[in-house]
């Protein structure tokens, strides 16, 4: 278990190191996230009440779309026709490759989210209850489900032609539970809803995360055969 975690950590580190060299995906995601905030402000021009109502949805849509930019690259990009090239020769369990990639994506998207959060809060004049653990639970679980499902689908799509076109098409229908539960729990916390009302939403996020933690063990190796 410890050795597996170490391998996952090494692969994640390698991924982040490669990203740190160019910062291509990171910069693109971050700028895109901020740009979406601006575009939404222009397009919707919401008043006070509407702002509170649409804020959680805007926030998550931005995270999903920005994250998609990074996810699409994690199995394609510089690696030519075969999705992974050298990494497949490494003496590690296939699942370790998946979790390493997912961990790297989680770090990158997490940083983008943390950077975008205060900007969204300022643009839409929404006070975030930062000391409320339920807000963080919603953000962390939603992001985790998104990254696990997204990394898996990115690996899947990387086997096809025009993977970048295909990824959103395949990912979003499968991501519906996360979209609903993440937006509703974040919105509920902002609207000071009771925890009991939101419990089911958190449960959906946990179930989704567990399913996409388990699925790679069973199915990921099939995506890497060549």
């Amino acid at each position: 278990m410890v050795r597996f975690a170490r391998k996952v950590g090494l692969i994640a580190f390698r991924e982040l190191q490669a990203e740190a060299r160019t910062k291509e995906a990171f910069v693109a995601m971050l700028v895109f996230a901020l740009l979406v905030a601006v575009v939404f402000s222009f397009a919707l021009n919401p008043g006070r009440e509407a702002r509170e109502e649409i804020f959680p949805g805007l926030l998550w849509v931005t995270f999903f779309f920005a994250g998609l930019l990074g996810l699409g690259r994690s199995f394609a990009g510089d690696r030519g026709f075969e999705p992974l090239g050298g990494l497949l020769l490494a003496p590690v369990d296939r699942a370790a490759i998946f979790f390493g990639k997912a961990a790297a994506n989680l770090v990158l998207v997490g940083i983008v989210e943390l950077a975008a959060l205060p900007v969204f809060s300022a643009f839409f004049d929404i006070r975030l209850p930062l000391s409320d653990g339920r807000l963080w639970a919603s953000l962390v679980l939603g992001t985790l489900g998104f990254i696990l499902g997204g990394t898996f689908m990115a690996a899947l799509a990387a086997n096809a032609r025009a993977a970048e076109l295909l990824l959103p098409l395949l990912l979003f229908p499968v991501l519906v539970p996360v979209v609903i539960a993440a937006v509703q729990t974040t919105g509920g916390v902002l609207a000071r809803a009771l925890t009991e009302e939101l419990a089911f939403g958190y449960r959906i996020l946990v179930v989704y995360t567990v399913v996409f933690l388990a699925a790679p063990w069973l199915l990921f190796e099939y995506l890497l055969e060549s």
């Binding site: 898996f152 519906v176 609903i180």
Partner: peptide, 16 residues
């Protein structure tokens, strides 16, 4: 994966 996802989709939509 698509088939496994359907019940979760249904639960989330019902709750929504």
């Amino acid at each position: 994966i698509g088939f496994i996802d359907v019940p979760i989709v249904h639960f989330s939509v019902t709750w929504w």
